[in-house]
Structure formats: C-alpha cells, structure tokens
Amino acid sequence: MTTLVIAEHDNAQLKGATLNTIAAAAKLGGDVHVLVAGSNAKAVAEQAAAAAGVAKVLLADAPQLADGLAENLAAQVLAVASNYSHILFPATASGKNVAPRVAAKLDVAQISDIIGVESADTFQRPIYAGNAIATVQSGDAVKVITVRTTGFDAVAATGGSAAVEALEAVADSGLSSFVGREVAKSDRPELAGARVVVSGGRGLGSAENFKILDPLADKLGAALGASRAAVDAGYAPNDWQVGQTGKIVAPQLYVAVGISGAIQHLAGMKDSKVIVAINKDAEAPIFGVADYGLVGDLFQVVPELANAL
C-alpha cells in the first residue's frame, strides 16, 4: 500500500496545504510519495523531499505543467496512478479542480474534504455545510481523496531526506490554455493557514470602513477574512470569503466583527479554537458559537481592542 500526494505549489514554493495532506497520508500507513508537476519546479521537489515522512518525490517538469491546467495535471497523475492505492490532493481550489477528473478516469468515486481517517478505506467528511459528519467507506481499488487541511496538523517541513526521481511529463492536451492570473497582493499571512483570523461582515458598512480592521490584524499578526455579505457588497475581495463556499479556516483565534453568523459562514470557521464575536445585535447567531462575545458598536470596540493589545 503506497499513497501518492499531489503537491500544491507555484513552481517556486511548496504550499503549506501539501504538508497537511502528507499528514493525512501518513495516517493511512504505508509509504508516502509526493508528485510535483510543474515547470522549473526543482526547488519545490527539494522542499517536498525535506518534508517529514516522505519516502520519494516524483518530479514532472515541463512547460505544459506550469499553470496546473486540470487536463494536463490529471493526465500526469493518471500516468503513475496504477502504482498507488491512495491518491490524495489538498482540498484547495487546485486539488478540487483536478481530483474528480482523476477519479472519473479511474472509474472510482472521489471522497471530498476528509477531516478524519478511520482506516485505509473509511473516512469522515462534513456534509450539509458542516451540520453533519458522514463516515464513508470506499470499496474502490484506488481511493482518490481531497483532504481538508484544517483537519490535519501539518508535518514538519524539514527533517526528511527523500530521493527525487524525474518523471516523463505528459504531452499537452491541447484542449485548454492558460491566459492569465490576477493575484491579490498581501503582506498578511495566508488566510487558510493563519494562526489568527480577523473577519468582517456587512456590519462594517463599506470598503473604507473595512480598514478599521487593519490595526487590529497588525497587532495580532492576523489574516483578514470576510463574510459573503461583505464580499458581495464589494467591501472585501472574493478570496477573503470564509464559509461553505469560500475558505475553511480553523485558526487558534477567530475574531468575527459585524458578522451575524449565517449557517454558511459558520461552516467555514466553527472549528476555530477560540471564537470572539463583536456585534451590536445581542441576538445574532454568531454569539451561539462564540467563546467570548462582546455586544457593542464595532467602530468603538475594534480600535479600543487594537489599542489594548
């Protein structure tokens, strides 16, 4: 039994989500191999080889693998799939894009967003926006899985010494091409992996007012997040959205400011260790999950809190 983990990276840096996925792979028992498919991605392969618990790294390096196009990346995974009993992707935008394509080609079910491993064929996953946890068993020969990264503690990024083996890259499918990318620049920690997250909702009232969260986030070294209402209203960029259809986070501390706490938002943050809610409506559902709630005007409370830290 050997598990293949598909690395998430930007051709220069291995993304943290890969380390959580390796941790899930380790729970299955058996060897863990990592596939790095990219362009000029040797540095990424070396980082993957240094991760704790990795036995071997496969590197497929070619221009057509540069941008993670689903057609090419899935073909690359399928080229080696027959050697593995489990194929794991992080449940990120990239992993969710490619994993079902691989599964369907192998004619197996795909198991999405696992949060627990019970055995080599039995897994736990949230359904209905996290309002229920399903335990599912797969009878398929190969298990294709995406891993909710907040469900597993990352393995150490150093200490491993796996060999890197070059793999022949698959040909370009010719079906799709990459046009461009608009990456939101940020000096703050990455939302999905942050230790502290400060999120704003509709209560902030405008994009301008959202800046009131900056000093607080700076003091806490926090990533900024947002509710869907705030994103839809244009107060915050789309990729800040925390919730069932946005990012799933589980930081040590989550501060919800001006967020009522709809089911869909709670789905993305209720596994946070400590939740603080600041809201002027004492009846807001967010207080039902908050460890510490403060009823008050956020425009007074937030600056006061930033000053007190």
């Binding site: 990239s94 799709s176 091409s177 990459f178 046009v179 990456v183 960029p237 789309n238 990729d239």
Partner: peptide
C-alpha cells in the same frame, strides 16, 4: 482560485 483570479 485561492489568492485571486485566473483565466483559461
């Protein structure tokens, strides 16, 4: 996508 938008 995570971190922004991409066009294909």
């Amino acid at each position: 996508v995570d971190g922004g938008l991409e066009t294909v």
